[in-house]
Design a protein around this nucleic acid. Structure first.
Lengths: 296, 296
DNA sequence: ACAAAAGTGTTCGTCTTACACCCATGC
DNA sequence: GCATGGGTGTAAGACGAACACTTTTGT
């Protein structure tokens, strides 16, 4: 007979502010929206949507299950708490409650090259790894050292290395990083919420490469420049402009021009596009592949 | 405060018998290994390994969380049961308890072309979809109809369509498929275990394309022909021989010749290879991409 | 000899990345 | 005029798929 266990939902709700990705979080230490499973909802996804609408006033577009965390001691409570985490996307950029993702994971924004903080952390981890070949290889792989290129989607691998090395703070469990030697790695979040956030960002960065979920984050009408800026904000990486435009337009039928233009861009007016809603969910597997500039 | 809920683990444990993939299952209706979360295990993965070793006598290699099922009524029990499902790979081909995956999902083996059963089911689903454009497009996409190619990894999409149309039996919930018109779609499994199996096969077929987990299923020494047969058994699809060999060998450092040969192949003796264990887990992201023959 | 499977060399075409360049607007 | 971002054509190259062919065994 199954054991009785405390179970909760934790949500990584993401929107984009043209410049940077934002996540719903509140309190001190910051906490992702979370709460118990409500028995009245037939499916978890439906429950999450209702719950986010009622409690946060946010209507979700794309929703995807992330991971179920159940390690003993993951919450402060004694005994085991199972957390089923979800990723949700919304274009509602409602006023308050949003936190810049890169304030919480400050080494993850590589739009202007790999940030100095990431390089410092990589070096620190190389020292931590010492003679341990596996640790060293994981570090070089995750942080783009040696022969490896920086790969934006390895968010979780980077976070887990930092956590193992005691370089990131987690509220409650574990010790504070030794602030003398180590660089500042951003604020702790409640329990393991920062790990859950890292899981969500990793998944999102992977997903936008092969499914056009990016449109869930855009306003109804947008320019290709805005679309590119949104992709770059999430990916934490620049993409090749000309090829990005082509890729999007060649995904025949995914977007269509509205006929209007946006003159506020500071240069030539940009044509506005909209996502073609006739495109059904399954057709959308074609994805928003984006060409990365060959850095290195 | 989190609600108290019944929680269990369900495992999709896979091995390959050169000819066909096998999964651990037992009983009537067949059930995947499952049981309550044991409070003594710190992490779920560790728990699953210990649990599989003790109860099934199987030592797992690769382990990965699949999905957490929590729909009301998914188990026979009243109220909600949360099932955290895992995929595990092993080379231990121990005697009993193994069931051929394609006995349970008989439309999924496309090694000799898309099976007649899959085509029949596709046609039946087209009828079921009727004027519903989204259903029709999902069906054509999942079953490789119209302009779409058959994609082996869409296991779950196919299963869910069949389930929605009432064409697969699930034990307890739902009705039996109307046996007069519909083709036979294999035996029911306990509760939603066949759906969980479909989730596992889908994940496995995706994973082998970009991570060399295939080696977890091979004996220590193997020929490239055996390796190819194993990939084909899982993928449910033939691959191009010459390019497969090259791809494997070009993944420099992934395999190395043992110097021995296997003369039992019926033709020219085949060189034996082994997986290079010096290759650490993180390096292994390079993957076992396999070239598919261009069918269509 | 011939069947059968192992193994090698090379061509062809597509898709990714990059480069070069023109266009339309505000200041 | 010139800075700024929008927008198009085309070439270099990597990679995937296919073809043609040789090698080594068992019967």
């Amino acid at each position: 007979m199954p054991s009785s266990i405390a179970a909760e939902l934790v949500a990584v709700i993401v929107s984009v502010d043209e410049e940077s990705p934002r996540v719903l979080a509140s309190g001190a230490p910051a906490a992702l929206p979370h709460g118990p499973l409500e028995p009245q909802h037939r499916s978890l996804q439906a429950g999450l949507r209702a719950w986010t609408r009622e409690r946060e006033g946010v209507e979700l577009g794309f929703v995807e299950q992330l991971y179920t965390f159940a390690d003993v001691g993951r919450s402060g409570r004694k005994g085991r708490t199972v957390a089923i985490s979800y990723l949700g996307l919304t274009r509602a950029q409602g006023e308050s409650g949003w936190v810049d993702v890169y304030d919480l994971l400050p080494w993850e924004d590589a739009r202007d090259g790999v940030p100095a903080l990431a390089s410092q952390l990589g070096e620190t981890l190389v020292g931590w790894a010492g003679r341990d070949g596996e640790r060293l290889e994981r570090t070089e792989h995750a942080f783009g050292l040696g022969d490896w290129a920086w790969r934006p989607e390895l968010v979780l691998q980077r976070y887990e290395l930092l956590w193992e090395a005691g370089l990131v703070a987690e509220h409650g469990a574990g010790s504070t990083p030794s602030s003398s030697t180590a660089p500042a790695t951003g604020p702790a979040m409640l329990h393991d919420h920062r790990r859950i956030l890292a899981t969500g960002l990793a998944r999102l960065r992977s997903t936008i490469q092969y499914r056009p979920v990016i449109f869930e984050l855009m306003p109804p009408d947008f320019t290709l420049g805005q679309l590119q800026a949104t992709v770059e904000a999430l990916a934490g990486q620049r993409v090749h402009k000309q090829n990005f435009r082509r890729t999007v337009q060649d995904q025949l039928g995914l977007v269509e021009p509205t006929g209007e233009t946006d003159r506020s861009t500071g240069g030539r007016p940009a044509a506005l596009y909209r996502f073609r809603s006739e495109v059904h969910a399954e057709r959308r597997h074609v994805g928003t592949k984006f060409p990365r500039p060959r850095t290195r």
